[in-house]
Write a protein that binds this DNA or RNA. Structure first.
Lengths: 158, 158
DNA sequence: TTGTTAAATAATAACGATTATCATTAACAG
DNA sequence: CTGTTAATGATAATCGTTATTATTTAACAA
């Protein structure tokens, strides 16, 4: 954890930004909730638990800054809010998401999977790919099982 | 065009909705600007040219309804607004987009390209894919050429 | 240490896209 | 025609985000 904070600190310094206590607190919240997809307000509330004096605007500014530096990715799952997702160490591309339309859970896929597709896009459309966003909508493993259970229970009723 | 409106009319009727004049005007605007990615306000302004008495709320309601019926897809390219994109006839999945980070242009890809990736997701993650969203960010053909021209002009100066 | 300057912050107002409310109107069955 | 329900238009309300402004902090020179 400290190692990653050090790294982000260096990234900030390289663009002559500082890692202020508020920014550090925000980064720590992101690191501690890496598996989640927090909205700005989520981050704000979590930061507030440790540093109650922090303002919402500062959280927004920090998240914007981190997005610029490509420390986090700003994503949008179609509900009204932007969410912020830490890039994995050394990840060149954005990772993918599996959004369950039943329970709303979000799973991450680290593997790239798009190398072939990107080759096609570059050769066939002449488009120089810099990054991508891929989200699958469907039914997660858990909800599939529940559907099976529910329908067999339905069977038993008859 | 009339054919496609008839089809949408039937889709509405099948869920006991009506194709009111306002809804028809909205659908016509979408059909006439199929290559664009209009925001709700864009649609509103265009509809207003033909039917000035229409209200913004009605446009929002119509777009919401069409999204529910999967006649259009609601998309978000990261600027603050939702955009609405007609599904192609018979298209089972959402089409992909190439967003140029230089000029902001948006190109569409009709081909699916993701069949193999979806197979992997289904088998390896146990996730039942219902739909997908794929957007590439990069540099379009036009901007690539301009970059070349600009840099050679730079060369000539020396 | 003290003073100076610029960056960062907190509080809050402003903004803008979207949604909710509500009175009015249109469509249509009885 | 009359009652009922869906749809609409106008507009208020909501809510995420951004801008403003006064204040604080940090860096650094004198």
């Amino acid at each position: 954890m400290e190692h990653r904070i050090e790294k982000i600190k260096k990234q900030l310094h390289s663009q002559s930004y500082k890692l202020t206590p508020q920014r550090e607190a925000t980064v720590r919240v992101l690191l501690e909730n890496e598996e989640d997809h927090l909205s700005a307000e989520d981050v704000y509330l979590l930061v507030k638990e440790k540093a109650p004096e922090i303002g919402l605007a500062t959280v927004y500014r920090t998240l914007e800054l981190l997005t610029e530096l490509k420390v986090v990715d700003k994503i949008n799952f179609g509900d009204g809010v932007s969410r912020y997702d830490l890039r994995k160490e050394g990840a060149e591309h954005f990772h993918h998401h599996l959004v369950c339309i039943e329970c709303g859970s979000v799973e991450e896929i680290e593997e790239d999977l798009l190398l072939d597709v990107e080759k096609i896009v570059e050769s066939q459309w002449g488009f120089e790919v810099k990054d991508h966003r891929l989200t699958f909508h469907g039914i997660c493993r858990v909800c599939q099982k529940q559907a099976v259970t529910a329908s067999s229970a339905e069977e038993n009723k008859k």
